[in-house]
Computed example of a mutant assay.
Amino acid sequence: MKICIFGAGAIGGYMGVKLAEAGADVSLVARGPHLAAMKENGLNLIEEGDQRTNVAVTASDNPEDLGPQDYVIVTLKAHSVPPVVPKMQPLIGENTTIVSGVNGVPWWYFHKIGTDLEGTRLESVDPGNAQWDGFGPDRVLGCVVYPAAEVIEPGVINHIEGNRFSLGEPSGEKSERALALSKALSSAGLKAPVRPRIRDEIWVKLWGNLSFNPISALTHATLDVLCTDPGTRAVARGMMVEAQTVAEKLGVKFPIDVDKRIDGGAAVGAHRTSMWQDLDQGRPMEIDALVTSVQELGRLTDTPTPTIDTVQALVALRGKTAGLY
């Protein structure tokens, strides 16, 4: 089984180290100083504060060096994927599975959904149908990424918490390809359950990202603060209630209620969300995948999203005034 991780930053690098350590045939696509460090010194993983693992990895910035794969695990940020679809083509053979480990509403959301919205394309996350046409939705295996990790220096990943990568077919079936990848990830010490309702998990994670990320980028408040301050908690709650209405119209079932989800965010503590970090570091924020996509789904389901609309407008302008777009 050949596995390529496309976008071997923090999460992709963490997964890459675990797979390589377990003896899997894994390769990584990365770039810049991070790639150079991996080639020279291998890829290093720090776990539980001080436990350090170093593995030699096959890494390149040119997919042509790696050839067709059984699985291509995409761990880029959502807005970074459409522009690189043409570059990824050498990795894709007749039976290649694309594993979409990307935050937010996935571009394949309406593939095999079994409703009258079957086959609907989402412009907010797949402009110009780049992924739908370039990959083909039949190749896709859904993945919800739970670990937290960071690149602390080129070639060095610090694993903060979590080791679960939930997998799921858009159709809900337990396919051979899903079970085979689950087994490979489990052999590497990762949790990889195959879920029959992967969209439910996508929404539970998105629920927090949709609200906490843009509010933190706008206020520079950590999770413990924005989830307990009465004003920002109310804004987050309003966004989440609107999102829940949209999702339930699409058949999603939420296993917890809104307030428990917000309390869970508060329990994370003084965490700076990824959107806030991107803003501080001058990188484009994941606004479309996390926020604009829910607006688009609101229009598709005739659901008003006034709180989401307001926050989306504010954080989009914040990105523009910061020169990120």
Rank of each mutant, 00 (worst) to 15 (best):
M1N: 03
K2F: 00
I5L: 15
I5R: 08
G7L: 09
A8C: 11
G9D: 11
I11N: 05
Y14K: 08
E21P: 10
A24C: 12
D25G: 06
S27G: 12
V29S: 00
V29W: 03
A30L: 13
A30G: 13
G32L: 08
E40K: 15
T53I: 07
A56F: 10
V57Q: 07
V57N: 13
D65M: 03
G67D: 14
K77V: 11
P82H: 10
Q89A: 14
Q89D: 06
L91A: 06
G93I: 10
N95Y: 03
T97Q: 10
G104F: 00
W107I: 09
F110L: 05
I113A: 11
G114D: 12
D116A: 11
D116T: 13
L117I: 04
R121K: 13
D126E: 09
W132K: 10
G134K: 01
G134P: 02
P137M: 03
R139L: 08
R139N: 09
V140E: 04
Y146I: 08
A149F: 11
E150Q: 15
P154K: 11
I160Q: 14
G168N: 00
E169L: 05
S171E: 09
A184W: 02
L185A: 03
G189H: 13
L190G: 04
A192K: 11
R197M: 09
R199A: 15
R199D: 15
L206I: 03
L206R: 05
L206P: 06
S211G: 04
S211D: 02
S211F: 04
A217I: 05
T219Q: 10
H220R: 15
T222R: 07
C227Q: 08
P230V: 06
A236I: 11
A236K: 02
R237S: 12
G238N: 04
M240E: 05
T245D: 14
V252Y: 12
K253C: 10
F254A: 02
D263H: 07
D263K: 11
G265L: 08
A267E: 09
A267G: 03
G269N: 03
Q277W: 01
D278S: 12
D278E: 12
L279Y: 07
D280V: 15
E286H: 02
E286T: 00
E286L: 01
I287M: 09
D288I: 01
A289G: 03
L290E: 07
T292L: 05
V294Y: 06
Q295D: 06
L297Q: 06
D302W: 03
T305Y: 09
V311Q: 01
A316P: 00
L317T: 14
R318K: 10
G319H: 03
T321F: 12
L324I: 05
